[in-house]
């Protein structure tokens, strides 16, 4: 294999352009397909092209049988994203651990004393107001959003944007009491029970977490459990 091809696939995905690397298992010959248009010159049968398209849509790498032998289709999709609202202590370990788990992380806090590069070395920071940041970042179904400030002025606009998006995970830090007050405000803003059900609050799996790092573990664990809900369900059914 040519390392250059794999590098281009990884870079393409990181830049937001899905890619597929197609390998003929017998010969080892490879072809890189970027985006929806197939520029590659692999000997493509209709059925192989259909399988590549399907793998890209499903975000699932797969080994398929063709009349010419086995072909491995490896999908490189843009990374999952995590938007953390509130550059508070919990956000520091959460941003680091989520990056290790493969998320592209953005920490949002209009208070620049909190969202500083000293506190978040190497982390993408935004000092926009959350509604502006969300309008720019456009969370999609591969995005998770967590609010951590406890401050309705900052958290609420982020939650409103999150609930209007198809984000796969929405979490909000705060006690049961804080959360009840939050839901009341969201109800006044026109949101319904079905919206409330999408918010994980109080945030995180209940593992008895105490320190900011432990709370970050509980949040990342809950994001993971939500991301992998299908696996979890099939395991519990078995």
């Amino acid at each position: 294999m040519k390392l250059e091809l794999l590098k281009r696939a990884v870079e393409s995905a990181a830049a937001g352009q899905p890619a597929a690397l197609v390998t003929d298992i017998k010969s080892g010959l490879q072809e890189l397909i970027q985006g929806a248009d197939f520029k590659g010159n692999i000997r493509q049968s209709e059925s192989l092209i259909a399988a590549i398209r399907q793998a890209l849509v499903d975000d699932r790498s797969t080994l398929i049988e063709t009349p010419e032998g086995k072909v491995f289709i490896e999908v490189f999709n843009p990374p999952l994203r995590l938007m953390v609202v509130g550059a508070v202590h919990i956000a520091q370990p959460l941003a680091r651990m989520a990056a290790m788990a493969g998320y592209a992380v953005t920490v949002i806090d209009p208070r620049s004393a909190f969202a500083s590069s000293e506190r978040f070395p190497g982390v993408e920071l935004s000092t926009e107001w959350p509604d502006e940041a969300m309008a720019r970042l456009k969370p999609d179904r591969r995005s998770a959003i967590v609010t951590l400030t406890h401050d309705p002025k900052v958290d609420d606009p982020a939650l409103i944007a999150a609930l209007k998006s198809p984000a796969f995970y929405v979490g909000a830090l705060g006690s049961k009491k804080t959360h009840a007050a939050r839901l009341k405000r969201l109800a006044e803003a026109g949101f319904k029970e079905t919206d409330f059900a999408r918010i994980h609050g109080p945030v995180g799996l209940d593992i008895g977490a105490v320190s900011p790092t432990e709370i970050a573990v509980s949040i990342l664990a809950q994001i993971t459990a939500t991301l992998r809900a299908d696996r979890l369900k099939s395991r519990q059914a078995a």
Binding site: A14, D59, V75, F76, N77, G102, R142, L227
Partner: peptide, 25 residues
């Protein structure tokens, strides 16, 4: 759903480094 690609970048980087040093990989 998604494959987390966080680790692949590091592996790729090391492979490239070895190749750069003239090693078989």
């Amino acid at each position: 759903m998604a494959t987390n690609s966080g680790d692949n970048g590091d592996i790729l980087e090391q492979a490239a480094k070895w190749r750069g040093q003239g090693k078989g990989v």
